[in-house]
Amino acid sequence: MLEDLDALSRRIQKVVQLAQGLQAERQTLRARIHQLETECQMLKTQQAQERDAFSQMSQRAAQHDHELQAVRAETEQARSALETRVRDQQQHADALQRRLDATQEDYGRLSAVAVDAQKQIELILERLPGAEV
């Protein structure tokens, strides 16, 4: 019977050791669960912050796109206005060039007429009585 009691005592010790081991393992698992829950909460917080940052960046990108479109439209209007002004100035310059060409032609004709008139005046003056020959 003592042997049975010794065997029972050993079995009880093994059960106690197993229970203590299970308790230690349980505490380890609880600590790990707590650590994982904390990590999960941190990741959720980080995800929320990143979602907010992404939302803000998306809004800024949309605002920049809108501003860029406005600047492009303004630039296109300015370019169109400048092209119109260049065409108008070119037409004005062409008109002035035609007037200059016509004026130069008139000047050339008038110069030739003036030279002819001067020659005729000299001929007439030479034929007048008392003219020096």
Rank of each mutant, 00 (worst) to 15 (best):
R72N: 10
Q69S: 14
Q97L: 12
A95Y: 01
R98D: 08
R72P: 00
R87A: 10
Q89L: 14
V71W: 04
A93I: 15
F54V: 14
A70N: 05
L96S: 13
Q97A: 11
R60K: 07
V86A: 13
Q69A: 08
Q77V: 12
R98S: 13
T75Q: 06
S80A: 11
Q97T: 15
D88G: 02
A70P: 01
E74V: 06
A62K: 05
S58T: 03
Q97R: 13
L82M: 04
R79C: 08
L96W: 02
A61F: 01
F54W: 03
S55P: 00
A70C: 11
R85E: 15
A70I: 10
S55H: 06
R60V: 03
V71L: 07
Q91C: 01
Q59V: 02
H64P: 00
M57L: 15
R60Y: 00
R72F: 04
A62R: 11
D94S: 00
D94F: 02
R72W: 07
R85H: 11
R72E: 13
V71G: 10
H66Y: 10
A78N: 08
L82I: 01
F54Q: 15
E74L: 11
Q91N: 07
Q91K: 06
M57W: 02
Q97M: 12
A93Y: 04
V86I: 15
E83D: 15
S80I: 11
L68D: 06
L68M: 09
A73P: 00
M57I: 06
S58Q: 14
A73I: 03
H66M: 12
Q56G: 08
L96G: 08
A78C: 04
Q69L: 12
S55E: 11
E67D: 07
S55Y: 07
E74W: 12
R72V: 08
Q59E: 15
D65W: 04
E67F: 01
E67Q: 06
R60F: 02
A81W: 00
Q59R: 05
Q89C: 14
A95W: 04
Q89G: 07
Q89N: 07
R98Q: 09
E74I: 03
R60T: 04
A81V: 07
Q91H: 04
L82V: 10
H66Q: 13
A93M: 15
Q63L: 11
E67I: 01
Q63R: 06
L82H: 04
Q91A: 08
S80P: 01
A93K: 14
Q59G: 07
F54K: 11
A78V: 14
R79H: 05
R85L: 05
A61I: 07
A61L: 09
M57G: 05
D94C: 00
V86N: 06
V71R: 13
E74C: 03
R79N: 13
D94V: 03
D65L: 15
V71T: 12
A93S: 11
V86Y: 06
E83K: 13
